[in-house]
Amino acid sequence: MKRALAIMVGAALILLLATLTLVVMPYLQMSAEQVPPDLKPYTEQQQRGRQVYIANGCVYCHSQQPRDPSFAPGDKDRGWGRPSVPGDYAYDEPHLLGTMRTGPDLFNIGARQPSIDWQLMHLYNPRAIIKGSIMPSYPFLFRHVEEPAEGDKVVNIPPPYGPETGKIVATEDALALAEYMLALDHTYPAPTLPKKPPNSDEPKENRAP
């Protein structure tokens, strides 16, 4: 039993060490990072949109973390924006960095597509805007009505993607999600990023406080 205990305690100690280096130290370092002054907290509606984004698993195809152009030039060249810094995520809980780019990075989608009508139409059926898109449609975020009531947000869908008769109106969830998309705009300068990377291989070295 002594030996069995020694193995288990040894195993636990090693994991404890890993927890210190991979969980505690980064947390201490990153929570001390400066929050960019131009970053706004989410509004209630945007936060609700963020929950819709989480509930429908957008993160499984879209990242929110452009990489440094000296490391991966495609990210900036595609218009996805400057490399992100920890401060950019100060209001993100949980994080939605993502690990897949089946679709494009969304860190600055609000700056690339600032029209709410574009966002809603794209959510209703991505193929109505982008031929050959493999993003799913989200018809359940919309209602099909014969006559839109007052205050309804009508989404004009080009044929043949819309219904034969009546109108498509956005639900509260769809509007919230679209507002969250528009809020994804990190085009402000990042205070913790060096203006010019002094060393192109490891530009982030200087970012540590």
Binding site: T19, Y89, H95
Partner: peptide, 19 residues
């Protein structure tokens, strides 16, 4: 540890997530 609610916001949440 990884599921401790609300303990790790933002980018540090990502490190805990992938750890």
């Amino acid at each position: 540890i990884a599921n401790l609610p609300f303990a790790f916001p933002g980018a540090s949440g990502a490190t805990v997530n992938w750890w």
